[in-house]
Amino acid sequence: MNPSACAAGLRPGPILGIETSCDETAAAIYCGERGLLAHCLYSQVKLHAQYGGVVPELASRDHVRRINGLIRAALADAGVQAGELGGIAYTAGPGLIGALMVGAAVASGMASALGVPLIPVHHMEAHLLAPMLEDPAPAFPFLALLVSGGHTMLVAVRGHGVYELLGESLDDAVGEAFDKTAKLLGLPYPGGPHLARLAEQGRAGRFHFPRPMTDRPGLEFSFSGLKTAVLTALPADADAQTRADLALAFEEAVTDTLAIKVERALQAAQLERVIVAGGVGANRRLREKLAERARRGGFALYFPRLAFCTDNAAMVAYTGWVRRRDGQMPGGALFTTPRWPLDSLTPPRSAA
């Protein structure tokens, strides 16, 4: 057991992680000695598909229906009794406030009943640390490209809880741009994966879109103009091949832009390792382009497994374990927040 945990009188044991920030309900068990013991997830994609996007009230209600069963399943898969847990970690933000409150209420009740710490976890910090669940895990420091439906960020990660925001999107997040463009092309929800599959049938060179903000210094992103460019280029009577060609041109523009900014950020922060986190990190073209640039540029590249790119509780349980191990739980009491700047986090004591 970590000395700081002993000093705080904390009971040793695995951490239960709970994730309910948006449209995935998940529970996981992480143990410092044995690693990830179990992770269970239920996706609400089918529930929201008929509406073309996430309906917050429906998401919250479905979290209520699913969360207790997933927690029981995770405990059973891990072979852990609830009384053996050493803490309950939950996603406190950012996210949909109603959805966050479901996980927070369940976590708070369990922590109180079991007499263990309640550990609020920052959703973006959890994504940043998701590659730590892999073998080999990246060593600190590294550059993190965090790309999801709600965030596009470049972060210099110096250690657990020591984060420097280098650049972010000024408008649409990259995942949001994928989804909006997919909708323009008549693709179903969730649009990003459907657009990527359609792009595989596209012909290169028929359309070309700008690589936003790469012709000027800086590490910020802007993707809202790309979906407008697709709309302008989209004929009213576009056939299937034209839509595939547009999807490919859009995907190429986005992934090129991300790769260019990653190389700039590496130079600016003087780092030699890159991790990619968030749902868009599953995109095949992005992985291929970054891998090619890593070979040419000599930097190391890390991805979490595909299941841990999207929202999940494994990353929440791991982040909660780190915070508990180092004797510092952000917030220290039950809270939820739809907005929570990453750079407002207090580093664990061991990193301060």
Score class of each variant (00 low, 15 high):
N2A: 01
A7D: 13
G9Y: 11
R11V: 12
L16P: 05
G17R: 14
T20A: 02
C22W: 12
D23R: 04
D23F: 14
Y30P: 03
G32M: 13
R34P: 06
H39P: 05
Y42H: 02
S43F: 13
Y51C: 11
G52R: 14
G52T: 09
V54N: 05
P56N: 11
L58R: 06
D62V: 12
H63E: 07
R65A: 08
R66N: 06
I67P: 05
L70M: 06
A74V: 04
D77N: 09
A82T: 03
A82M: 12
G86Q: 10
I88T: 07
A92L: 10
G93P: 06
G93A: 13
G93K: 14
A99S: 14
L100F: 05
L100K: 08
L100E: 11
M101E: 11
A105Y: 02
V121G: 01
M124V: 02
E125W: 10
A130Y: 13
M132W: 15
D135F: 03
A137N: 02
L143V: 08
L146D: 05
L146R: 05
V157T: 10
Y163R: 07
E164V: 15
L170Y: 10
D171G: 01
D172M: 14
A173Q: 13
E176K: 09
A177M: 05
A177V: 06
D179L: 14
K180M: 03
K183V: 07
L187H: 10
A199F: 03
A204L: 11
A204R: 14
R206P: 06
F207G: 06
F209E: 00
P212E: 00
M213Y: 07
R216S: 11
F221Q: 01
S222R: 02
S224Q: 08
G225T: 01
L231T: 00
A233W: 10
D237N: 14
D237C: 06
D239K: 09
A247D: 02
A249C: 14
E252M: 14
A259E: 00
A269G: 09
Q270S: 14
L271C: 03
V280K: 13
R284L: 09
R287N: 10
L290P: 02
A291M: 02
R296H: 13
G298F: 08
G298M: 02
F303K: 06
P304R: 05
R305I: 10
L306Y: 12
A307Q: 15
T310S: 00
N312I: 07
A314W: 01
A314H: 02
R324Y: 04
R325M: 12
D326W: 15
G327C: 01
T337S: 15
W340I: 13
P341D: 04
T346A: 14
A352W: 13
